[in-house]
Nucleic acid binder design. Structure first.
Length: 547
RNA sequence: GGGGCGGUAGCUCAGCUGGUUAGAGCAGGGGACUCAUAAUCCCUGGGUCGCGGGUUCGAGUCCCGCCCGCCCUACCA
């Protein structure tokens, strides 16, 4: 058996405006999964992109008085630029308007589905902002409820896709779990929708209505491929599906996991339309569709059009990348919308990262400096120091993340007796890998971070309980036994810190590196303690995050 | 109109297949300690579990109705 291959994607957002925090949630979750799978040894491809071909983009560009391509390029840049402030380990970015792989792929996908495509007359009231038809009853005062604009009467012949013929197969695939939809609430929703009957859906627009923007229907230049068809295709077009490239075989056809992260608003497209398209085209389906709910800002719906938005890049610049990531991973429940309030972000940053984690590492490193001149004592003995700088191996983490007893962390047999009272801490360290693994298998980011956090809590508690400063005092007073005990305590603590750095890698990559640096001896000596996080005092712009 | 999901302590949330006194974190109050970023640790939570019925020996946890919020969806006149 070869190395497991895992393909992870985010949705590709419209680029009619700059990115907001809602997308940051999705892409950070995806990033955590990607990093986690890499640590497990999987081959991972983590992909995102931008949906440039939406008519919304055209309209937004017109409103801004900018050429469409130029406008789209500008916003797409802002999305792609999220990598830095959010610390995203993205492997590939596809832009549907510019990437030559995309058009070729979409065209091939269209042809592959030819048996299910047919022309049909259609007419109705259409809102370009929503890119959908409305019935008169749905309108408020004759205007689009969403945009407040007057929909236009559209009558044309479009291409339709025979979604209806896939209802039974889709239902079976989803209810059997072969196409896994998480959380289960969302899966049930999809099953209910399918059970209610599926209608064929329109997959093209007249070129005129699309203002010439988008990918023409192969062989029918009067029509442009519907943006959803186009956009969903990105998951394979970026893999060179259009040219039958190696990536397609490696990451789609032959991948062990094909994981899509999506927002609840586009569940249907991903869990029904997209799989049906793939079935039609004779392609494998995604294995997992992970659905997140929405973020609001100060109780108001985040919406580009209403101007209520939170710029994740600005937030990261203001409060720090990992503070933003931490809030997203730690506070957002898997079901239910979450209100973003900057005070809560600050509270998480201060209470947990600065006071909890940062202070823990700082006090441990400081103690080793104060009591041992920066030399980490050797494990299980009262004399000598570590011969090598500690790494993941010392924490027992590097070998895997299974929860099985066979992979329990080897914290050193002598520590248990030399460091009484550390059972809770050691248990937290031992259990963390399994708990994290289990949580992320279920895409439960809060549960995963909680498992990491148990170590922080236990470590701080242990210090207060064992009172190393008193051991140090006894040692100074000539108590030789105290020396051995203090050694053991410090070893347990520095190991816990290293374990933290290790476990935190998928969640807070920057912090993880800084912890590792703090806890790694150079020339037998730890570097001087340096705060991991600065406490955030002013909840207003102006402050700068720590380096 | 239909479907789905939420509505649990001031705030943010856990509560598996129904079962002894409904939990955690934060905030608030009290105390301890000093290694550490005025950090940490301990003690302190008496909340109609949205409302009203019902099933049951027993329901936050199942059933029905209703209210509020959000998502999706719908040609009824």
């Amino acid at each position: 058996m070869t190395t497991p291959h895992t393909y992870i994607t985010t949705t590709i957002p419209y680029v009619n405006a700059r990115p907001h925090l809602g997308f940051a949630l999705e892409i950070v979750q995806a990033d955590v999964l990607a990093r986690f799978h890499r640590r497990q040894g999987d081959q991972v491809r983590f992909q995102t992109g931008t949906d440039d071909n939406s008519l919304k983009n055209v309209l937004a560009a017109e409103a801004a008085g900018v050429a469409v391509q130029e406008f789209v390029d500008g916003n797409a840049e802002a999305f792609i630029a999220l990598r830095e402030p959010l610390a995203l380990a993205v492997d590939d970015v596809i832009r549907t308007s510019r990437d030559p792989r995309h058009r070729a792929g979409v065209e091939r996908l269209w042809r592959a589905c030819a048996d299910d495509l047919y022309r049909r007359h259609y007419e109705g009231l259409y809102c370009v902002g929503c890119e959908q038809f409305y019935t008169p009853a749905e309108l408020t005062g004759g205007r689009c409820p969403e945009h407040g604009t007057e929909p236009q009467w559209v009558a044309e012949e479009n291409w339709f896709f025979r979604l209806s013929r896939y209802a039974d197969r889709l239902h079976e695939l989803i209810s059997s779990g072969r196409l896994r939809i998480e959380p289960v609430e969302r899966r049930n929703e999809v099953l209910g929708f399918i059970a209610g009957g599926l209608q064929d859906f329109s997959v093209s627009r007249s070129t005129a209505r699309a203002r010439g923007w988008g990918i023409p229907v192969p062989g029918d230049p009067g029509q442009v491929i519907y943006v959803w068809w186009d956009a969903l295709g990105n998951y394979i077009t970026a893999l060179d599906y259009g040219t039958g490239g190696e990536n397609h075989r490696r990451w789609w056809t032959g991948s062990d996991r094909r994981i899509h992260l999506v927002g609840k608003g586009v569940l249907r497209f991903h869990a029904v339309y997209w799989p049906a398209m793939l079935l039609s085209a004779g392609q494998p389906l995604p294995t997992d569709i992970v659905v997140h709910d929405y973020l609001t800002a100060n109780g108001r719906k985040i919406s580009k059009s209403s101007g209520v938005t939170v710029d994740p890049a600005v937030l990261a610049g203001e409060y720090g990348t990992d503070v933003v990531r931490w809030w997203l991973l730690r506070e957002v429940p898997r079901v239910g919308d979450t209100d973003f309030i900057v005070d809560r972000l600050i509270a998480r940053g201060n209470d947990e990262l600065a006071n909890g984690l940062g202070n823990l590492v700082n006090r441990v490193v400081a103690m080793i400096h104060r009591y041992r001149d920066g030399h980490v004592p050797a494990a299980g003995s009262g004399t000598g120091t570590e011969t090598k700088a500690g790494t993941g191996a010392a924490t027992g983490i590097g070998t895997g993340t299974e929860a099985e007893p066979g992979t329990e962390v080897k914290t050193g047999a002598g520590i248990g007796t030399g460091a009484p009272g550390s059972e809770g801490l050691q248990a937290a360290c031992r259990q963390a890998p399994g708990l994290i693994h289990a949580a992320l298998t279920d895409f439960e980011f809060r549960r995963a971070t909680a498992a990491v956090w148990a170590i922080v809590d236990e470590a701080n508690r242990y210090i207060n309980h064992i009172r190393p400063w008193e051991l140090a005092k006894a040692e100074r007073d000539g108590d030789f036994d105290a020396t051995a005990r203090l050694d053991a305590v410090l070893v347990v603590l520095i190991r816990a810190c290293r374990a933290l750095g290790d476990h935190l890698t998928p969640f807070l990559p920057d912090t993880a590196i800084r912890i590792a640096q703090q806890c790694a001896a150079r020339d037998g000596k730890l570097p001087g303690p340096r705060p991991l996080f600065r406490r955030i005092t002013a909840p207003e712009p102006g402050s700068t995050p720590p380096p």
